[in-house]
Design a protein around this nucleic acid. Structure first.
Length: 464
DNA sequence: AAAAAAT
């Protein structure tokens, strides 16, 4: 690895930014917890947020390592600096982006450089990674050539759909054709010739095997949530198999908020000679997300406390994470029986039901979503202001899973907005899991006592 | 344990 040039990006290269616009104006409903939110009001708020989605700014130190020490590194401060095609720039501004986020300002010049170089890019949840790789893809597509030139794979159906929607919106003034490759989206025997294909690994591999998707002209291959795509059993194998059929010259782009050491090592072999953008350990999670824990007496007590939280507080929108599909089903039924309007989503559902559940939540038609790790990563819903870890995240060996934790709480506090997360502990083990994660990410998780309902109300009402 | 696949 010797000879790699290392450049520490200094704060001064971006200059001092103006005061971030307070987000509160954009979401006044978050400030009025005493009044019941009417659904049409929430829908109005969502429209309002969508008009100005990217006002807040997040600044963090990143470290850039160039694959070739002779390269000259230059970040940008405006989208104009990127010399994008006119119709693409129009799409960027139409989406409400004003200036590049840090990851966009840092990654895009490296991604867009010719000849193309691989990239391993790390940036916190909700800081604009999708837009970064989407702009690279849209810039590189040759419209006249009616073949697939870019492939994006992601770990879940919902995320693949979201990426595709983003990409379409950004490219809506271009003639780029896109296609979704998830179960049920492509007819049997139907040939896929879209310029850009976004999908999940199993379906993409099937399409390649059945010769419905021609990969020979692909020039960009993106793995979103790359650490998960490479490390998770089943996902990792398929990702490697797909990579092995990609043209040898194609640009490989890996993005995630987390790259645990053992995966990063593997990633540098998967994407050789990559320019890398990485975060320090202590920068992994964003400060705008307040973290709490509530120690409950037992499993039963968790459900009671959950119910009382929703009795006490008016919450914009929230996601409740549980460990198993079964718990999701159980909790959904129980909360519904207790008069709360909650929906659920997990991998046991049919594709169409999954689509409906996430679409309803996205549009504000449902406000509380109980789910598994299927939605832990990438899902971008600006009005989510509370994430509850009903079960602490654990990995396949039942060890505390800090990466999943970081991704889960990252479903709130998007683009510098405020967010709250609450962890439920109910025994020594879950308490220790929570403490282990707390020390790993280096941020305090504050205790909320559960013996007095009035206390819960007092403490949480201030935050949510 | 969940996800991703479909036979």
């Amino acid at each position: 690895m010797s000879g790699w040039g290392e450049t520490n990006v200094k704060e001064s290269s971006w200059g001092k930014d103006p005061e971030p616009t307070p987000i509160k104006k954009e979401s006044s409903w978050a400030d009025e917890p005493t009044e019941t939110i009417k659904m049409d009001q929430l829908e109005k708020e969502i429209k309002e947020i969508k008009k100005h989605p990217h006002l807040a700014e997040v600044e963090h130190d990143v470290q850039v390592t160039l694959a070739d020490s002779n390269d000259i590194y230059h970040s940008v401060s405006t989208f104009e600096d990127l010399k994008l095609k006119e119709e693409l720039l129009k799409g960027v501004y139409a989406m409400g982006y004003q200036k590049p986020s840090k990851i966009q300002a840092t990654a895009l010049p490296l991604l867009l450089a010719d000849p193309p170089k691989n990239m391993i890019g790390q940036s916190q949840a909700g800081t604009g990674k999708t837009a970064a790789f989407s702009l690279n893809i849209l810039s590189r597509i040759n419209i006249a050539q009616k073949t697939t030139q870019a492939l994006v794979i992601a770990p879940a159906r919902e995320l693949a759909r979201q990426i595709l929607d983003n990409l379409r919106e950004m490219g809506k003034f271009t003639q780029v054709v896109t296609s979704l490759a998830v179960p049920g989206a492509i007819e049997r025997g139907e040939k896929v010739s879209a310029h850009v294909v976004v999908g999940t690994p199993g379906t993409v591999m099937e399409l390649i095997k059945k010769r419905q998707l021609d990969v020979s002209k692909i020039i960009v291959f993106v793995l979103d949530e790359a650490d998960s795509m490479l490390d998770q059993q089943g996902l990792g194998d398929t990702s490697v198999r797909i990579k092995n059929v990609m043209p040898k010259t194609c640009q490989i782009v890996l993005f995630s908020a987390t790259f645990p050491d053992h995966v990063r090592e593997y990633a540098t072999k998967f994407a050789v000679n990559a320019n890398t953008i990485s975060l320090k350990q202590e920068e992994l999670s964003v400060d705008s997300i307040k973290q709490f824990y509530m120690d409950c007496k037992n499993e039963q007590h968790k459900a009671e406390i959950l119910s009382s939280i929703y009795d006490l507080l008016t919450i914009g929108q929230s996601i409740i994470f549980v460990r198993t599909r079964r718990t999701a089903d159980y909790l959904q039924k129980r909360m519904t029986d207790e008069g709360h309007s909650v929906s659920s989503l997990h991998g046991d559902f049919e594709g169409a039901d999954r689509d409906k559940a996430i679409d309803d939540f996205r549009e504000g038609r449902s406000k509380v979503l109980i789910t598994t790790n299927v939605l832990a990563r990438g899902i971008d819903i600006l009005q989510v202001n509370l994430v509850i870890n009903y079960d602490m995240p654990v990995d396949k060996d039942m060890r505390p899973d800090a990466e999943t934790y970081i991704h889960r709480i990252g479903r709130t506090g998007r683009f510098g907005r405020q967010g709250v997360s609450i962890n439920f502990c109910h025994d020594k083990r879950s308490f220790e899991e929570m403490k282990a994660i707390e020390s790993y990410i280096g941020r305090e998780i504050i205790r909320v006592p559960t013996d007095n309902i009035a206390d819960i109300e007092k403490i949480l009402k201030k935050e949510i």
